[in-house]
Design a protein around this nucleic acid. Sequence first.
DNA 1: CTCCCTATTGTTAGACT
DNA 2: TAGTCTAACAATAGGGA
Lengths: 217, 217
Amino acid sequence: MVRQKIEIKKIDNLTARQVTFSKRRRGLFKKAQELSTLCDAEIALIVFSATGKLFHYSSSSMMQLIQRHNAERSKLGQQPLNIQPGINNHAMLSKQLVELSIGLKQLKGDDLQGLGIDELMKLEKLVESGLSRVGKTKNERFLTKISTLKTKESQLMEENARLKQLAEKVRDARVNDFEQGNNSAESISNDCHGCCPGEDKSGSDTSLKLGLPFSDN
Amino acid sequence: MVRQKIEIKKIDNLTARQVTFSKRRRGLFKKAQELSTLCDAEIALIVFSATGKLFHYSSSSMMQLIQRHNAERSKLGQQPLNIQPGINNHAMLSKQLVELSIGLKQLKGDDLQGLGIDELMKLEKLVESGLSRVGKTKNERFLTKISTLKTKESQLMEENARLKQLAEKVRDARVNDFEQGNNSAESISNDCHGCCPGEDKSGSDTSLKLGLPFSDN
DNA sequence: CTCCCTATTGTTAGACT
DNA sequence: TAGTCTAACAATAGGGA
């Protein structure tokens, strides 16, 4: 079969894909080398095959090039960090954390060793900013939880106050019943302070509610 | 003129070199992209022109690829660039930063929003640790620089002290010469305090050295 | 720098070993 | 997998705008 133009999309056939990878990878490395030689350029090229095998080339020090690349990128990456203060948008915070993550990743490479004092100070600032944001969110979370708990607390205290009153009423009523020799439960007034709409009378297990510890919050 | 085969060596003509750089760079990036698409490979390509301009391409995340590359390299036991004696173990520090970075990356996905207080506290601790490490390295760098400068300073002070003595000797000698009507330069003793082995006499430009500012530093 | 043009050189798909 | 072959295709040197 004669050769045909191929379209640039993933090659389905595994064998063909591997063969093409091998051939084109060589071509790519050759071209990289040529460009580097012809034009005095510095080039780093990293290739991972689909099967995870590593191939790489660099005209000088891979590390130096990566560092230089990172330096350039962080220059650009600083802008998006300086955004509108005062907004506690989680999406924004998340975005900034991503950037922080990128910044840290940049350093992972081989070292902090290659970094100068200036770069380290920049990084420090970046991490500090991330830290402050995490701390801020954490604190917000704390405050929210605390205010929720306080609300609950005051609700419970109100409830308890009402129950105390109810308990006294019930006791008084029972004392009266006992003194009058009247055992009919129906005569006991049942105040459910509006929490049981349409139910004015049930009064059978009031004693159970009275068993609750009033002082517990 | 018809096109000729070129040999792969640095192109002398600046303009031709720039044009070729432009053309071939594009070709290289195109090929990288094609290889990545056709064969499902992951590729990172960094190019610096001779004038320092950066061009880069990566099929996925440049950072991920660089990390993977570094991971592979360190597997092979190639020490990427370490290890200056006397400096704390940067490899370890780097490793811990990687871990920190991974932790942050996990959170990158969507947000802090889904995180509870416990997770936020963990994250905070993590980032704090990273911050402290960066700060530590930065401080080490400061201290190293300071100690270097101090060493230099004391060396210079020593040197200056010697030069002062020398200056006095020379002056005395000249005064003697003048009083005795003796103009022979050879009689001036030249103390180079051991920094010029095998050279006991040169004495011709001593006056130049004396021109150094003693009070500097 | 970038784009265009074209003759040439360089690369590679497909097939086979 | 890796090498070889060859027709076809892609890239690009040199030149001009």
